[in-house]
Design a protein around this nucleic acid. Structure first.
Lengths: 144, 144
DNA sequence: TTATAGTCTACTAAATCTATAGACAAAAAG
DNA sequence: CTTTTTGTCTATAGATTTAGTAGACTATAA
């Protein structure tokens, strides 16, 4: 399951993608409209900023805005940033690999093979799923 | 990520599948060979027993054994039993569905669509992955 | 120079996961 | 029919992770 943090991040990013190139948006506004605790959201947006997905502007009239084009931000990257590994076992994770304690022969582990398959399919879908694509899919159904 | 409980369950089941129709195996033996805390393993095996995946025999010479054929036990069922939902969002879970708080229009949610895709692929792979198949894959590489 | 709004550090609370203790129940062996 | 073995069950403790909050600090625009 995704953490709330990750869900909040995705919703905030979709929200900002809808307002791409329309100037900075207040944290407060995102928090209220998406029902996200403001202080929690601050930390999330900051992380996304450090990852060069968002930019921010300080002072009056400031706020956050999408730094990249909506088609250049995919869910794989967001999920890794928020929740860490996407794989279901540490020993099949590409970005957060750790050997299994119990496994002695990783190369011939039948269990591992299964989760390599799951990982590959999951990454394929998540990397194809960009903010632009998500917006496209829910077009005509503007969310409040 | 799978919980330790779920990993332990899978390892214990593979271990028992290797000894299918060879009589009951002590909890103690499984615990030692698979490096699983015995008391924790007891609870896990009990759950698997209640789910009709394992049977047990009490008293001297007792223990646990696989109740079904190894080809009739798949990872989808085990994971649901141990960790609950397999889906990454409650609103796309088949067995543990819950609506998303933030989502107002579930039918047209672009985020949801992505995770329906992930869920379907994951379930497909996990339901095809049986104990028999796992054993088959690691054949010739007998684990200690 | 003041008000606004993001930045950063440090906590606290809640939930979940992992592991253990110990009493109890059933079955086999002698 | 008593002893030993081994699974059953309840309760709980400890550790870790997740979620959420507080408050001081900094940059910027008007």
């Amino acid at each position: 399951m995704l953490s709330k943090k990750c869900k909040y991040a995705i919703h905030a990013l979709v929200y900002l993608a809808e307002r791409y190139q329309q100037g900075p948006v207040h944290i407060q506004d995102i928090a209220e409209e998406q029902h996200i605790p403001k202080k929690f959201l601050e930390a999330i947006l900051l992380e996304l900023r450090n990852a060069k997905i968002l930019h921010s502007k300080k002072g009056k009239g400031g706020g956050y805005y999408l730094y990249r084009k909506p088609e250049d931000v995919n869910l794989m990257e967001i999920m890794r940033l928020m929740d860490g590994a996407i794989a279901m076992l540490p020993c099949v994770s590409l970005n957060y690999y750790e050997p299994c304690e119990e496994c002695r022969d990783e190369k011939n582990c039948g269990i591992r093979d299964v989760f390599i398959g799951v990982r590959d399919e999951t990454l394929r879908i998540l990397s194809e799923s960009t903010l632009a694509q998500i917006l496209e899919r829910q077009k005509g159904t503007r969310r409040v």
